[in-house]
Every structure is written in C-alpha cells, then in structure tokens.
Design a protein around this nucleic acid. Sequence first.
DNA 1: CGGGATCCTTAAGGATACTG
DNA 2: CAGTATCCTTAAGGATCCCG
Lengths: 104, 104
Amino acid sequence: MRVGGKWTAMVLRCLEDGTPRRFSELRVPLHWITPKVLTETLRAMERDGFLRRTVHDENPPRVEYALTDLGRSLITPLDAACAWARTHAPEITEARTAYERAAS
Amino acid sequence: MRVGGKWTAMVLRCLEDGTPRRFSELRVPLHWITPKVLTETLRAMERDGFLRRTVHDENPPRVEYALTDLGRSLITPLDAACAWARTHAPEITEARTAYERAAS
DNA sequence: CGGGATCCTTAAGGATACTG
DNA sequence: CAGTATCCTTAAGGATCCCG
C-alpha cells in the first residue's frame, strides 16, 4: 500500500479542504518535492482511488488533483494517528533519553 | 519513527493480549522472520518505550518481551487503521481494476 | 536460547536535465 | 505548466553463518 508512503499523508493534508490543487501548487507545501517523486505519489494515489486527476484542455496546460470520497475517508484514521503522536510524543522522547542513558 | 516499519504492527499484535513472549515465540507467527530483523524491530520498539525487555538469569537463557502502557496505547489507532482497511479494501481493488482498464 | 557479524538485494527517494 | 528520462544514494529488509 502506498498509504504508508512518505508523502501520501502530506498530499492528503494539502487536499483535505476539498479544493482541487494544481501540480505546482502541491509542490510548495511539500518542501519542493521533486517532480518525479510527486508524480509517483499522485499516480499511486490515483490508482488506488484516493484522488481524481483532471486535465483541462487549455494552454498553458492545467491539471488539477482533488480527493475522492475514498480519499476523504482516510482523513479520519489519519487524524487519529496524528492525535496519538501528539499526545505521546513526550513519552517517546523520554523513553529514548532513558534508553541512551542506560546504554552508557 | 519505527511505527511505520514493516514488522512493528505485527509485533504489537503478537503481544496485545498482555502475555510476555520469548524471542523464539515471536518468530513463529511472524513467518520465521530472521533473527536480525526481529532483533532490530524489538530494539527499536524498546528504545521508543513500546515494550520492555526482561532477561531472566537462567540456563538456558530466557528473554521475554511485553508491551508497556505506551505500547498498548498504540493498539487503538492501529485497530482504527485496520478497520478502515477492511472496510475500504473492496473500493481500492475496484479502483485499481478501473485504473488498469483505463490504461489499456 | 537469543542473539551478533557479515554480506547482499531491492526499492524508495532524490538530483539533474530535458520536453510537449 | 506539468510532467518524463536518466542516474544515483541510501537504508530497510533478508540470508547465512557463528557465538556465549
């Protein structure tokens, strides 16, 4: 599953408000991810039905990406995971510190 | 985070009932994962405070792994993710089929 | 029994350059 | 603008053998 990919969650965040975004618009909040990697991520998400790719026949070309219902349904478990991370991050940090201390 | 690792979730499943398990016991349900990979996974999870490693001073040696409270707290979001996957797996399969069909 | 040491394969991710 | 093409680096994961 590409759900576990490095960029899938961040693309989801970029599109969760329902507004379609263009390829270049997506690159900005993603720290200027290279075109190749963004393309791979978007293609995989389109393939799995998480987003829809719309090509507008204009000049210059315009391509927009928007979440599908399936993609939107991912937001809930994603939020749950983020909430868990925020809540428990201090404990993890503490555990790591304790581990390092025990190692020395 | 090692939470996204390939084996972390499965180790969690092996220990979620609260019963401590030995190194060898863990290997069985994990399709005979190699010792190196299991060790790496367990060490990372111990480092992050998800489980506790207990060495019993016996002969032959006995080492047991058990979830901590922090590790148990991961079960909830993990269940949520699994529930999502079960619910939407057919949609993903269908989307992939449609994608393949459109490609040809 | 519970690993450590070593070597290897693969795939994700990325840098750079070019194109319809 | 929205990619494609090519090459490269790294690290996860794994196979195999060895040890206290």
